[in-house]
Amino acid sequence: MSRARWLAVPAVLLATWAYAQSAPPPPAPAGPHPFFAVHKVLTSPRCMNCHPQGDAPLQFDQSKPHAMGISRAIDDVGMSCATCHQVVQYDFPHAPPGAPNWHLPPEDMRMVFEGQTVQSLCEQLRDPAKNGGKTLDEVLHHVSHDPLVLWGWNPGPGRTTPPLSHDTFVGEMKRWVDMQGACPEDTRPFVPAPPMPIAAPAAETPAATDAPATDTPAADTPATDTPATDTPAAQP
């Protein structure tokens, strides 16, 4: 009896050790780090144009400075973005796009997307002092439900959508949030992703031989998470 008791002690210890070894490991990204895909969306024109480095919003797929000298300064002279950007999206060409609460980030919380590397944008987005005071769950809720974010996938005629579907984007964001906002090490220079092509009217479609070569990645394909090298990100 006594011998059996002595044998039981190491058996329990062994079982405890074995259980510890079988406990699930900390979450690790399966496949590419999710923030590569998130970065591709946030630096696409529909998102980045209202998160510029300067005071002027950007416009069009070329991300040009807003026409008519529009900048944050309009708030100081009695105007607002809603002067022209109404809460509804119109389907006729050339009208200003519209969505509820059209605005730039505030001057003291600029939340710049333009020019950010994957790593720097990730670090900014997880930091409540730089992301508008949001927890990671609140960031996820924001990109999942905010009408102005959702507008990016319904931007009206003549504007491309982000390179991933909204569902895929939110899924990648959730993977990132599940990783507690861990950021990849990647400081390659920022190169804007090529916009998704817009279907042109048949009469305006150039001949195939005149069309420039494109290596636009397929939609919903996250960017590679190849470690940084001297070579800029593989984007045209």
Partner: peptide, 18 residues
């Protein structure tokens, strides 16, 4: 003028450029 009772030329450009 409600917002800037004494606007500068720059203020006027910003407000009226549209």
């Amino acid at each position: 003028l409600k917002k800037k009772p004494q606007p500068t030329d720059e203020d006027i450009d910003v407000a009226l450029s549209g």
